[in-house]
């Protein structure tokens, strides 16, 4: 303490150069950040050492040290020898994009609509009810879904038959053409309420004066929505979009895993399921790791692309 008081040097941090002096000056901050850096190193970077498996013919009995190096053979197996994996990538991307678009559209629309409800009590009620499915685990959601879509007196079949849309009940989960949409709309059902929270919060931060002045200019509800609310939450939308684009390949595991069956497996398998199937079930850890690496690399590329697109458009961005 004594020394610090006497030294009173001003260090120009903005210059960007990290000097010992700067570090000494901020030693409390540095100390405070050590646990977090250690956390990230330990749990996010050290496990990356496992990537070495992708370039070995890894056998748990031999370990890293004694397993044979095979170069890029596993990647070759994925992309050249095995047409399955390309189909798996297609499925993952398709479901990821469907999920992204649907979840954005529905969450924003829901937030806008809810914002128009004037009475507090029904608004709170609707909002709370809409969150609830988020807290159900996927296995329960899939159980509900199987009952709802069941050919054996499931409610969807009953309604469609009564409305004469269908002649007789059909087994929805066996149609390849429907699978992606079933997954997408299940996610909408489960997550719309939860995803809209952040938009509703952003909407409340919009200056109410804007609405009043728009009303004086003769703007109706839809004009206000279009010209004030949406632009008001645009930065939020962009940031979330950027974050979620990196997640496109995380199109899900549980729902596809739980709903799949032999007849739709060609459209239901995602990269995660593929990794589980080869990496864990067949004990080909190397192949599983290779598929995982591919997924990470694509995700990073997607994030960078989206970020620079946002930068070019002059919108909010991550970095």
């Amino acid at each position: 303490m004594e020394a610090k008081k006497t030294k009173k040097q001003s260090i120009n941090i903005a210059s960007g150069a990290i000097t010992w002096k700067a570090i000494k000056k901020q030693k409390e901050l540095v100390l405070l950040s050590i646990p977090f850096v250690a956390y990230v190193l330990l749990f996010c970077y050290v496990p990356l050492l496992g990537w070495i498996m992708a370039f070995q013919n890894y056998k748990p009995g031999l370990g890293f040290l004694h397993s044979k190096f095979i170069g890029l053979d596993k990647f070759k197996f994925l992309f050249v020898d095995n047409p399955d994996f390309l189909r798996v990538i297609r499925n993952t991307l398709a479901m990821g994009v469907i999920n992204l678009v649907l979840s954005f559209a529905f969450a924003i629309a829901f937030a806008l609509i809810l914002n128009e409800v004037v009475h507090k009590a029904p608004k709170k009620f609707v909002q709370t009810v809409s969150y609830l499915p988020h807290f159900l685990s996927m296995i329960i959601v899939c159980g509900i879904l199987q009952d709802v879509l069941s050919i054996d007196h499931g409610i969807v079949n009953e309604i469609l038959v009564k409305l004469h849309v269908l002649k007789e009940p059909i087994n929805f989960l066996t149609y390849k053409s429907l699978f992606w949409w079933i997954v997408g709309f299940t996610n909408v059902w489960k997550e719309t309420g939860w995803n809209s929270i952040i938009y509703i919060a952003a909407i409340t931060a919009i200056n109410p004066d804007l609405y009043d002045s728009a009303a004086i200019d003769g703007a109706g509800r839809f004009r206000k929505m279009w010209h004030i609310t949406l632009p008001g939450i645009k930065p939020t939308i962009f940031i979330l979009l950027l974050i979620n684009i990196g997640n496109v390949l995380n199109a899900g595991f549980e729902i596809q895993y739980l709903l799949t069956n032999g007849m739709v497996q060609s459209v239901s398998q995602t990269i995660d399921i593929y990794v589980l199937k080869f990496g864990i079930s067949q004990c080909d850890y190397s192949l599983g790791t290779a598929a995982g690496i591919f997924k990470s690399v694509v995700s990073i590329i997607l994030i960078f692309l989206a970020n620079s697109a946002a930068k070019a458009a002059g919108e909010e961005r991550l970095f």
Binding site: P60, I280, S281, C283, Y285
Partner: peptide, 14 residues
């Protein structure tokens, strides 16, 4: 899980 997954999990954990 399936049998293979369960066994694979044990092997992965060691």
């Amino acid at each position: 899980q399936t049998a293979e997954e369960a066994v694979g999990m044990y092997i992965a954990s060691g």
